[in-house]
Design a protein around this nucleic acid. Structure first.
Lengths: 214, 214
DNA sequence: GAATTAATTGAACGTTCGTTTTATTATGAC
DNA sequence: GTCATAATAAAACGAACGTTCAATTAATTC
């Protein structure tokens, strides 16, 4: 036997990606075999090689998609305003929303970098650096304009990103807090880290609904 | 051939632990084979089974050691003072020093939890929770006494831990910043997150040398 | 210096891995 | 309907995996 009734290339590829993210997020890249992945999709292992030349390419493709989607999501909501507070609030909200919605691909992208070869690793890190640069620029602008009070912008940017990415470690959407709650609280914390504390006292921009909802 | 001149059980076990941490931190638990590990130690794979009954037990042992050492390190430097600022500064300094000094075991302990079975995972998480509870208590005491201004202590504690643990992602001890520099800057950031900003303006306790040096 | 114990080797076990090859079938175009 | 092609199955490849076991030797004990 070979081709099965109702099979469809595009659907199969999407199913492979989804299953790969889910399985690899839970068990890790190495612990997921091509047979197990194929079984989850309802297909034979050999069929996977019609869509990805090998296992590492599959991982790389998943990670590239993740990073490109993250950057695209940010570019879609990036405020026209040049107010650093508005921009930082928007960045935080977008980052949290994206990572909560894509917890599987976030886990894979954050944990499996070491399973990539040199060139593929560099390609992913390049995207990551470009994204982090956005935050650094916001902080630098805010520090220059006096809106923020920051001792070390590079270090603060790293600390912020680690803090807000960490949401997915403990956050479960069906608990006491909604995504909107968490976003608001993390926005308040990034403002504190940026030294924008004095602005919070008169009910400020970064609590606007557009950033709360993400 | 069998036993080799100069061989010694204790030294071999220590060498196995060290090599396992180094290799697993770099390549991941699954990607390190018992043969590769044995080769790094200068021994045959079968010799490893004299010290650890299997690969999972080895991982569990490494993680348990890591967590117990972390808790012991904190108990050794925990201030007698009940000033929340002093305690938070000490916690931050100890956490950063410990994780920078043990970056390999930190990576393994943070990344390979999913390679543990149910019971072993629970045992490690129990230790982790006990450690995190220390920070939560500091924040709660500070919030009650008015030294801190915190909206959500549990969430703030998680955010803080993620932030300060993240140091090992980017920090390399031979760069522009010393461990003391990084510690001081992260202490300032945890104080901001705790809402203790007003205290920093009169050159406060948490900049004392004992916490800077760790 | 003989007996015992601790430490290790080397070979082997069955299993699973990523991947390739070849054959087979459903689908879409004409 | 025929035909090309896209999609998959089934079987097989060698290599590597974690682990076990019997044999062997260094160190220790008496």
């Amino acid at each position: 036997m070979a081709r099965i009734t109702g099979s469809d290339g595009e659907k199969t590829e999407a199913a492979i990606r989804e299953a790969a993210l889910r399985l690899m997020a839970r068990h890790g890249f190495d612990a997921v075999s091509m047979r197990q992945l194929a079984g989850e999709v309802g297909v034979q292992a050999a069929a996977l090689y019609r869509y990805f030349p090998n296992k590492e390419e599959l991982l790389h493709s998943l990670m590239r998609d993740h990073m490109e989607a993250l950057i695209a999501a940010w570019e879609a909501v990036r405020p026209a305003s040049d107010d650093p507070l508005v921009r930082l609030a928007a960045f935080t909200a977008n980052h949290i929303r994206f990572h909560v919605e894509r917890r599987h691909s976030t886990h894979v992208s954050n944990m499996e970098l070491r399973s990539l070869g040199h060139e593929k690793l560099s390609a992913i890190l390049k995207l990551r650096t470009a994204y982090e640069k956005e935050l650094r620029q916001i902080l630098r602008d805010g520090a220059e304009s006096g809106a923020f009070d920051i001792e070390d912008t590079a270090l603060t940017a790293m600390a912020m990103i680690q803090m807000i990415t960490g949401v997915i470690v403990w956050f479960r959407p069906d608990e006491r807090l909604s995504v909107a709650d968490v976003t608001r609280k993390y926005q308040a914390m990034t403002m504190r880290l940026a030294g924008a504390g004095q602005m919070t006292e008169h009910g400020h921009v970064y609590a606007l609904d557009e950033f709360r909802a993400g």
